[in-house]
Amino acid sequence: MESAVSIRNLSKAFGKTPVLKNLDLDLKKGEFTVIFGPNGAGKTTLLKLIATLIEPGEGSVLIKGLDSAEEPEKARKEIGMLSHESYLYGDLTAEENLLFFGQMYGLGKQELETRATYLLKEVGLETRADERVSTFSRGMKQRLSIARALIHEPSILLLDEPYTGLDPKASSVFEQILKSPAFEASSKIMVSHDLERGFALCDRILVIKAGRIVYDGLKGDFSGFSEFKEECAPLLA
């Protein structure tokens, strides 16, 4: 079966500082992978490389078989990204934000309007569709961000510390949305500092340390993870 993301011999350095070193990784379609690791380990850099926001120093990233360096525009169509930043325009309404990003992904008018209405309903913002995003709470913005990330029906959803700034209620609403049937089909890769939530959601756990994958475990068998728990324990603080 073709992998959703296939990484081969991937290295990346910023200046003379190596951030990722010779990474090899295959992420299956539909899988929910959570990446843990200390600050500066290279987690966000890995996510940005998969998102085609930065180019690999060495090696390759294949998104559904498409080389992200050679065909970045085709690869980007497969990717939706949700960050701790909302990626939303405060002076536009919720619906206008979705319509704008849908247009940028080349969606037709009719399809886009249907999709925007559906997603606004899914994230519980259909009654606030005509209100400016600058008036929204952090939790509402994050829910709208999910809709924005999914407007073009990406097959891969990248989540970069999505719980940052969310209160417990907003976090649980966010989790319910992620688990709902509308969003189940996409492969998800989440970088998080939240061990508890990460374990609850994932099918697979990766731990990155100093630019290398030091742990790779599948759901049902995380026994080896205890070795890294101390490594990750400060993250809970």
């Binding site: 980007r76 990204m81 990626y87």
Partner: peptide, 18 residues
């Protein structure tokens, strides 16, 4: 400035356009 607020420039860079 509008693009740098809330990371919107990154969102534009994620779109499948030149």
């Amino acid at each position: 400035v509008m693009e740098s607020e809330n990371g919107c420039l990154e969102a534009l860079k994620l779109c499948p356009v030149d």
